[in-house]
């Protein structure tokens, strides 16, 4: 008897794992169904959906990159203080003094770049496949929200190194927001928190970047995956046309 099986057979194991015996297909489906972490995936899936050519795994890639960004971002938060007097020095310190600091920062930076690419490619792939069509229209809408969140996370993270590139890029970006009719000026002022990019802007962008946007992102990602699971066995218009 392996350790895993003995654990499952014990009182503790049976209290943790609801369906300990994974013998038949039905057992495995039941185990899958009752697992909080696995329940976002469908219990059964059509074989063609797990081939690379079906989706190019772009949604999974986006999710994996998001996970990588959360983990590396939490590491960076231990060493970063969002204030004009400290921010740039903290980044230098992470790069030169913190063990693996440069590695972690590069993971964060490159994951961010690749996530924008992966999300855009995912969107294009879903569009070309016609996978946005009925009955999956609403998941497309949720996906557009996720695209906007990804871009906002990217934009707010851009300011945090507090160097010349970041400063003027955000000056330009928030000035662009001011061109929006009626509300533009107000939105720009609330983003900047003053007349020009300064300490108020840095703390605002930091809070958006590490707290508000990721929290909203996790909720919307969960919704997106749940919809995907619910819709995965449904025929699309595309499938129906092929069947005819």
């Amino acid at each position: 008897m392996t350790i895993g099986k003995r654990f499952r057979a014990s009182t503790l194991g049976r209290s943790v794992i609801r369906n300990p015996n994974r013998v038949t297909t039905r057992d495995r489906a039941a185990g899958h169904w009752s697992n909080f972490f696995l329940h976002i995936y469908p219990v059964k899936i059509r074989r063609k959906e797990i081939y690379f050519r079906y989706s190019w795994f772009l949604g999974v890639a986006s999710l994996a990159l998001f996970g990588s960004l959360v983990v590396s971002g939490i590491y960076l938060m231990f060493f970063y203080v969002p204030s004009p007097t400290t921010a740039y020095g903290n980044i230098q310190f992470i790069q030169t003094q913190v063990p693996f600091g440069q590695y972690i920062r590069n993971v964060h930076r490159w994951s961010a770049h690749f996530m924008v690419l992966a999300v855009a490619a995912h969107m294009a792939r879903v569009f070309y496949r016609g996978a946005y069509k009925s009955p999956r229209e609403f998941n497309w809408v949720i996906g557009v929200v996720l695209l906007v969140l990804t871009l906002l996370l990217s934009f707010t993270g851009y300011l945090l190194p507090w160097d010349q590139l970041a400063y003027w890029a955000v000056t330009v970006g928030t000035s662009m927001a001011a061109y929006v009719p009626i509300i533009g000026e107000q939105v720009s002022n609330v983003l900047i928190g003053g007349q020009e990019v300064g300490s108020a802007t840095l703390i605002r962008f930091y809070v958006l970047h590490v707290a508000l946007l990721p929290t909203v992102g996790v909720v919307v990602i969960a919704l997106h995956l749940w919809r995907w699971r619910k819709d995965s066995m449904l025929d699309t218009e595309h499938d129906q046309q092929e069947a005819m």
Partner: peptide, 13 residues
């Protein structure tokens, strides 16, 4: 929330 986040008059030049 909006009023809270609006920059105060003191922050302008």
């Amino acid at each position: 929330g909006w009023d809270l986040l609006r920059p105060s008059a003191a922050s302008s030049l």
